[in-house]
């Protein structure tokens, strides 16, 4: 839904602050993807396709740490923190609720930064594949990244046999988040 809020200035400010953070964050996912071993061996078309279908999900993982479940606040990448109630007034409440729930579940797994980065790589190459020309190459890339993630996690936590599967169970959550919210209308101010 388009944002509606009494205090016109604050909602406008919030949208601008969101838009200013969002575009660079998308560009950072593109740079991140180019750093994934093997990603740039895919055809340019397949790289673009995976990024178009996976970037929103990678951002959801990345934004997890910005959602503070206890205090019900969200901190944008520019450091500004907003209470959930203020953001609800912008009409994104179902996305916000889903994000709080998702970030609580992922946060509870206590991943290290490098494990989180490898998980984001798996998220990207596990994105929707309609439009992919070389399916085999994408599957091989995905298998390699999942193997690397499993060995990193099991090496660090040999006695925790459930963490890896709990992590993979987040993939369908992300797919749902993506399908429910990435096609929502959002106003962006473009200079």
């Amino acid at each position: 839904a388009c944002p509606v809020s009494g205090a016109e200035r604050t909602s406008q400010e919030i949208w601008e602050s969101f838009s200013q953070c969002f575009t660079p964050a998308v560009k950072e996912v593109v740079e991140f993807a180019k750093g994934i071993p093997g990603f740039q061996e895919l055809s340019q078309q397949d790289q673009v396709m995976l990024l178009k279908s996976g970037t929103f999900q990678v951002l959801m993982v990345r934004f997890c740490t910005l959602f503070n479940a206890e205090e019900r606040t969200v901190t944008f990448l520019n450091g500004q923190t907003y209470p959930l109630s203020t953001l609800r007034a912008l009409g994104m409440s179902s996305l916000l609720d889903a994000m709080f729930e998702f970030s609580e579940k992922l946060g509870s797994l206590g991943l290290e930064p490098d494990e989180m980065a490898l998980f984001m790589a798996v998220v990207l190459v596990s994105a929707d594949r309609s439009g992919i020309s070389d399916m085999r190459a994408v599957e091989q890339l995905q298998e390699g990244l999942i193997r690397a993630l499993r060995s990193l996690i099991t090496r660090r936590r040999p006695d925790d046999t459930t963490l890896f599967s709990k992590l993979l169970l987040r993939l369908p959550d992300l797919r749902t988040l993506n399908n429910l919210h990435s096609d929502k209308l959002l106003a962006f101010r473009i200079d």
Binding site: V26, K52, T55, F56, S182, K184, L185, L186, R189
Partner: peptide, 25 residues
């Protein structure tokens, strides 16, 4: 003056990605 374009999040992401790859061709 700032132009105000309405688009979906998915379209906004696609737009940025297409621009990036076009620029780095």
């Amino acid at each position: 003056p700032k132009t105000h374009r309405v688009m979906t999040l998915a379209d906004h992401i696609s737009h940025i990605i297409t621009q990036d790859f076009a620029r780095n061709k």
